[in-house]
């Protein structure tokens, strides 16, 4: 999505997790993680918060405005 910068992949890799691991921990599908990382799908506030919680960081560490 234009205007949104996604750092999810970098954060996930830094945490040593695969897409499947993160999907499992956040109770979503691996496809969802993949589409969020590629900027194809913008997650809901709830999912963004859950991803941040799983990765132990703030939502702003995962997503920021361009």
């Amino acid at each position: 999505m234009a205007g949104l910068v996604v750092h999810l992949e970098a954060r996930r890799r830094a945490a040593g997790l695969t897409q499947a691991d993160l999907a499992e921990a956040a109770s979503v599908s691996r496809k969802t993680i993949n589409t969020v990382e590629n900027g194809v799908f913008v997650p809901s506030t709830l999912l963004a918060l859950r991803l941040a919680q799983v990765l132990g960081c703030s939502v702003h560490d995962l997503f920021e405005l361009e």
Binding site: S27, S29, K31, T32, F41, S44, L47
Partner: peptide, 10 residues
């Protein structure tokens, strides 16, 4: 439930 998540609903 994992397969019926935000992306599925979208």
């Amino acid at each position: 439930g994992q397969a019926t998540d935000d992306l599925y609903r979208h």
